[in-house]
Design a protein around this nucleic acid. Sequence first.
RNA 1: GCGCCCGUAGCUCAGCCGGAUAGAGCGCCGGACUUCGAAUCCGUAGGCCGCAGGUUCGAAUCCUGCCGGGCGCGCCA
Length: 552
Amino acid sequence: MVKARIKELLDKYFAAGAGQGLWSKAAAGSYTVELPKLAAHGDFSTNFAMLVAGREKKNPRETAIWLAKKMGAHKDLFDKVEIAGPGFVNFFIRDGVWQSVVKSVCEQGYNYGFSQVGHQKKVLVEFVSANPTGPLSIGHGRQAVLGDAIARLLEATGHTVTREYYYNDAGRQMRVLGESTRARYLELLNLAAEFPEDGYQGEYIYDIARKLIIEKGDSLKDTEDIKPFKEKAEQEIFANIAETLAKLDIRFDNYYNEHSLYEKGLVEDVVTRLRTKGLAYDHDGAVWFKTSEFGQEQDRVIIKSTGEPTYRLPDIAYHREKLKRGFDWLVNIFGSDHIATVPDVLAGLRALGYDDSKVTVVIHQFVTLTREGKQVKMSTRKANFVTVDELFDEVGPDVVRFFFLMRKADSQLEFDLDLATKESQENPVFYVQYANARLSSIQKKAKEKNISRTLLQGVSLDKLTLPEEFNMLKALASYPELVESSGLDLSPHRIIFFLMDLAGLFHSYYNSHLVISDDPELPQARLWLAEALRIVFHNGLRVVGLSAPESM
RNA sequence: GCGCCCGUAGCUCAGCCGGAUAGAGCGCCGGACUUCGAAUCCGUAGGCCGCAGGUUCGAAUCCUGCCGGGCGCGCCA
């Protein structure tokens, strides 16, 4: 919140300088406000003079002097404004400004950190989108948590968010699922059964087959139609997926079935339009999309010679439909194995005359599990692949969520089961939640001792003078900007890092200073500081979907 | 061969829309509870930011080329 005020002033003086003809408007917005590493360089610094003057081939120091004089006039904000190095302008914030952060936080409470930068822009976040062929793997788990956290951050920054799960229950995968289920069903009845070559080998197929036997006995043994097997499997697996997601507190607003695109003729319409524009053609009995006209090496098949569409055709229709539904921004969360579909879909949208810059694809890398320092082997299809449910056998939902959010999407994520299962010491989830619990505990303790917080307006916040206290105040002040940037950048991991840092500051402070002491005024100031910290821990945990326990 | 991602402390990773002397957690070693919760804290050690060029007043950050790892490159999804 302090940084934002400085940025506003800089923009104001940049405009003023441009108005006086000191420089052109070319450098508008190029300068930044940063946190210097050295205390001697102030609380904030800006490269304003270097960038603005550099562009005009003027002396940065002169521009810095001009700016420092203007900025220095704001005595309510700054103790002093200095020029250093090649033209940095360094700002030293008044203590009172930091101390008043407590007031802002406590007044806004659970709304602190929320903003309207999104202007209620309509965003559709599509994630998970796994076809119901089996339980969610840990790769899906990462995606589920990442997508949900991103959705929450977008909501916190004033976007109108819809969470959507896209699936297809009509394709080859589902046929194989039905065949696999039938094979297990017959096997359990001790009848001859041929298991499909590329069938689903997981134990869960037996579970589904057993349920079928309980419900229908052997009445399906002579049925050639795989439909009853497929439908039962789909129903059971979807129920399982929904249950897993519910444990993670993830709920979708919409499940979008690919099949409905066909029913509405939307898939066919894409082909027609592409043909009309000369961007689709027949070759070798198949229909091709001229992706080569959109920067790709070769054209792609959209309808096979069998008459069946390839996945990319309904994908294009689906994304077009999302834009037609009125969304301003489409955020897709994909695993890195699906990266190849992105250029096809974007090309399709452009070919149909839509703005593909409205689509942002977050690609997340793979998850590996380690136990005792060794990688746990995983392979899909086979029975030994690791599911989110299996993770829940060992750790709770907060741990799963936290670990999945600890890395940026671009990085491969190593899920250390040894670390995750530790209920103490070095487990970062508990480290952060413990800070929240301790802060809650302090307030309870104060009540027990009949110390109630006096009115915020009358509290002597200037009693907060320790360096540790200022460090925490500065962190609290930066929180709204953090939520804004991690929301707009779709980067929830930054919230996690912030929480770990803040927990470190607080635990350290707690161990060397008493909040509740005999001093006449200090406890009031510190109790309010503790309350502000508790609010920010609570808000930070909740904004990425973690719980904020008052006791553990 | 081509595309995308990654390469930073022993390990796992932040920092990457250029800023001043590169950070955290874990691990190792040694300490701290008669005080608000020890699921905590304090202290020590640890670096050619993969390599080589380039752009810049300034590069872990941007560009190019290599090297190493991951994921893709289907008329599978």
